[in-house]
């Protein structure tokens, strides 16, 4: 299993991470989608502790009347934390599209919904001058269980180095309401969907295999010897391999001596080229202003489809 975390220490680090990554871009506000599930609840608590409730905006974006309990849980959490929140029904915009371009694919519809939510989040990000906080955990990122350009899109991600089972530990420490902690994890792509049924593995087993492959750098053979079903291990290996494109910028065809994505290399929170010692401050102030009033920095968006 992934190592047990020292939850109070993790909270300290992540609260500082949210505060500093936003602060250095001159931004005080965090915006995130509230699904009523565990990951977004944990992220909301962290954001509230980092930025204060007035600086956190939770958008609850159900598709029509689907998932009423999740909407209720999300609204209760927002009220309990005292954050600003708003509920926006995405059905009209989703239906408008699928009326013109029908599909029988649940996955395709679910992905479209995830991207509609993303487009709303980014619009609010521009309206509010806030940063979008991502809620993808390490388990999801590793197996690619997320919609590219959808729920994976964010400005910063505080949770991406915590396995799902570790998020649960953190949730208990942060006193996330039991109603949220006890429900089955679901991407909410369609009613009755659960992550574990769709992935075909319980999170405990999945995290144990991932931890062996990633943290302990074990081979397939060693993980099977440790007691895992070969089919399960192979499935996890395949999911990791097939989702690398979701964790990277798209490859750029290299032509010049210095190309974006290859050898034009700058830190996220740093500055572009042209900063000289002594003149840096002026440049920074200007850049911060642009960012605060305009689009926040977006994380790399790559082309590609689908979940899972």
């Amino acid at each position: 299993m992934p190592p047990k975390i020292n939850a109070p220490f993790v909270e300290k680090v992540l609260v500082r991470f949210i505060r500093e990554e936003l602060g250095k871009c001159g931004c005080k506000k965090g915006i995130l989608g509230l699904s009523g599930g565990l990951d977004s609840a944990v992220c909301t608590v962290l954001a509230t502790r980092a930025l204060g409730p007035r600086n956190v905006l939770g958008l609850i974006m159900p598709y029509g009347k689907a998932f009423p309990e999740d909407v209720r849980d999300a609204e209760n959490l927002a009220r309990r934390l005292g954050i600003r929140h708003e509920t926006i029904d995405i059905a009209p915009q989703v239906d408008a599209y699928f009326t013109a371009h029908p599909t029988g694919s649940r996955v395709q519809r679910g992905n479209k919904m995830a991207r509609e939510r993303m487009s709303i989040l980014y619009d609010f990000s521009a309206r509010e001058g806030g940063f979008i906080l991502g809620t993808s955990n390490k388990t999801e990122l590793l197996i690619g269980y997320g919609t590219i350009h959808g729920d994976m899109a964010c400005a910063i991600n505080p949770m991406g180095d915590l396995y799902k089972t570790q998020v649960r530990e953190l949730a208990a420490h942060l006193r996330v309401p039991a109603a949220i902690r006890r429900k089955s994890p679901t991407a909410g792509l369609w009613p009755g969907q659960t992550d574990e049924a769709e992935i075909g593995l319980a999170y405990e087993e999945l995290d144990d295999i991932l931890c062996g492959l990633v943290e302990e750098r074990k081979r397939r053979k060693e993980i099977i010897e440790a007691g895992h079903r070969p089919a399960a291990v192979d499935r996890v290996v395949r999911m990791i391999r097939n989702s690398e494109f979701k964790r990277k910028l798209p490859p750029i065809a290299k032509l010049s001596l210095r190309s974006v994505g290859h050898d034009f290399l700058y830190p996220y929170s740093g500055r572009g080229p042209g900063v000289t010692p002594g003149s840096a401050s002026a440049v920074l102030v200007r850049k911060h202003k642009t960012r605060a009033s305009g689009e926040p920095k977006a994380r790399p968006l790559t082309t590609g489809e689908n979940k899972p």
Partner: peptide, 21 residues
Amino acid sequence: TGYTLKDLVEEVALDPHSDPL
């Protein structure tokens, strides 16, 4: 300078004997 400089290295480099800052 901060740590994660990457290509900023050459822009923040200085000679300690002569750099005014």
